[in-house]
Write a protein that binds this DNA or RNA. Structure first.
Lengths: 109, 109
DNA sequence: ATGGTAATATACCAATAGGTTAAATAACCA
DNA sequence: TGGTTATTTAACCTATTGGTATATTACCAT
């Protein structure tokens, strides 16, 4: 099913380095070396993160001379968004409750 | 910041058992034993999943005689949703490209 | 050919995740 | 008091994760 796809997507998003890489790619293609620059991390570590992202379908790789540029592939995020969105009413509810509580406090004063 | 919160939220969502537990809790509070029923898994395993969910703030626990009921807490999903939503335009773009491509195919026939 | 640059592969390590069994705790019931 | 039910803790296991250092591959330029 797409359950495994969600597994991979959410797991990929659970790491701040990987989220930052996606953010960077939102402003355009990038080489691995460029992507690595903001991080205090060796290249192989970045390569591994890229594999995780690629495995989740969140990036794709190109080939250009000795560079293998990365590009954002946002499609899996759509599924993730849809999954999360099923719960929208629940978090809106809880903010309603919070609102009500704050209102109540205000009236007491 | 909330980066760690996102780490925990996404990591919690990366497991199908935990997503199923949240889905179950969407229809109301539940005891641990009830939650465990659909799974081929021992109770301690479920307890661990619940700890992960609780650590991410996705559930809260009550106390009622010998039961410790779980309740959905959707607030962290709001942040997750907002994070993902930054990429909405990218997946919509790629569907636009797909649409264009399918349109092109159709015209060729 | 040789050397520099980009990236990956390989081998290793420590910490974490996800599961188990068995024992412990806690609250009810009789 | 003792027994039953609900849940957690503890100890353990294996696989995965996230990182390292080092070696290797691939391409380009001279």
């Amino acid at each position: 099913m797409q359950a495994q796809q969600l597994d991979r997507t959410f797991a990929a998003l659970a790491d701040p380095t990987r989220r930052a890489i996606l953010a960077r790619l939102a402003s355009g293609e990038s080489s691995v070396t460029e992507l690595a620059k903001p991080f205090q991390m060796t290249m192989p570590a970045i390569t591994k993160h890229l594999k995780v992202l690629e495995g989740a379908g969140l990036i794709s790789r190109g080939k250009e001379a000795q560079w293998r540029p990365c590009r954002l592939e946002a499609a899996p995020l759509k599924e993730a968004s849809e999954w999360v969105d099923h719960y929208r009413k629940y978090w809106e509810e809880s903010f309603d409750r919070l609102d009500a509580y704050l209102q109540e406090l205000k009236e007491k004063r």
